[in-house]
Design a protein around this nucleic acid. Sequence first.
DNA 1: AAAAGTACTAAACAGTGTTTATTATATTAC
DNA 2: GTAATATAATAAACACTGTTTAGTACTTTT
Lengths: 211, 211
Amino acid sequence: MSLADRKEREKIKLKSKILDAAKKILLVQGERGLSIRKIAGMIEYSPATIYLYFKDKDAIMHELMNTGFTILTNALTQESSEANPVIRLRKLGLAYIHFGIKNKDWYNIMFNSEKPMQHIEKCSVEWDQGMRLFEYIRLTCREAVDACHIPDMDDELLALHLWSSVHGLVNLALTDRLEIIKPGHTQALIEQSLDVALDSIFLNHSSRSQS
Amino acid sequence: MSLADRKEREKIKLKSKILDAAKKILLVQGERGLSIRKIAGMIEYSPATIYLYFKDKDAIMHELMNTGFTILTNALTQESSEANPVIRLRKLGLAYIHFGIKNKDWYNIMFNSEKPMQHIEKCSVEWDQGMRLFEYIRLTCREAVDACHIPDMDDELLALHLWSSVHGLVNLALTDRLEIIKPGHTQALIEQSLDVALDSIFLNHSSRSQS
DNA sequence: AAAAGTACTAAACAGTGTTTATTATATTAC
DNA sequence: GTAATATAATAAACACTGTTTAGTACTTTT
């Protein structure tokens, strides 16, 4: 059995070698620089071999997306110790934005690529981690809304609003639009804009302590 | 003089023929389907000829971006007759979102492509129309903030916040993320999320009439 | 030893953006 | 009118891209 097992292990090994090479290229050359042929060249196999381990390039991108979600989830979990849910939301927002700006290519694969979203029936499975993250934000929103006694505020809508706000900010920053609006103040603009979003919702209510 | 003039006119004619073909391909096959060779094929010239009229593909994309801005600006101007600046902001937001969703490829060229943004010194010139649009939103925000007597609210920050909110919504919608969150309710989610943004800022103040 | 299965690849297919050398045509100069 | 020049267009090549197919070399099973 050890014979077949070793083979199996070697197959998994090569599969992760492909992914490692893909990550390395992604980090250095960006999403545009990532190609099947470069991966093949890096691991010293022919391009055709890649297709024995992955259906196509999208399958590799999908794996990279999951890696990105793991990194982001870890970064956000770091902030979960904050007791005040409003301050926690702010910290989560900043961490999310920080991740997006420091990991441009991963961010684009996770949130801007259409590739992992093609088959509607697969969506809930394929974007599993994205859904889980949204659920986590929604629960934090519920906490914050309850703590501040804000009536008639739907937690899902609030989560979507905050998400789209930071998502918009990250995308504007990544495509240099903020730099055009106010050169040299991209980071400040981002933080202030996030505060406008949070303050406009939470500042007129009970809990108003800021970090 | 008519000889040289006719030549000149024919050059301009072919240049706009190239752009027309590019627009046609963009509408039917999307940004990904747009290629120099397809443009050349459509106007029945060789690919190399394109390069006599445009520096590269980015130059063509830039022209398409400007066309997109003209369409969007027209759509937004349509809403400028609304007297109440808060309701006007809402209508502008909806029109912006509508444009983004109905003109996916143009939207991406205008707001998500990095191409027109490469040279920092050129930025203010190259994204001239984008800046003008932002200025228009900023002024409307100023009006709304004044009308509602909201103290300490920076109009530029508010404009950025609202812009990033709708930009985020459009991008999430275009990449099918909203469909995953709540299948079949993309449009409703968008409108409700926009209302959360506007209401959280303006609803606790004087002017609260809604359309 | 023969048959079956596995791992891998060379080569091709159909694309992409872009550049270079060349040709055909039209304009200008003599 | 002929020769020199300038213009317009292109064929062909370069260096890439993702993907498929047919075939080879090697290992395992029968």
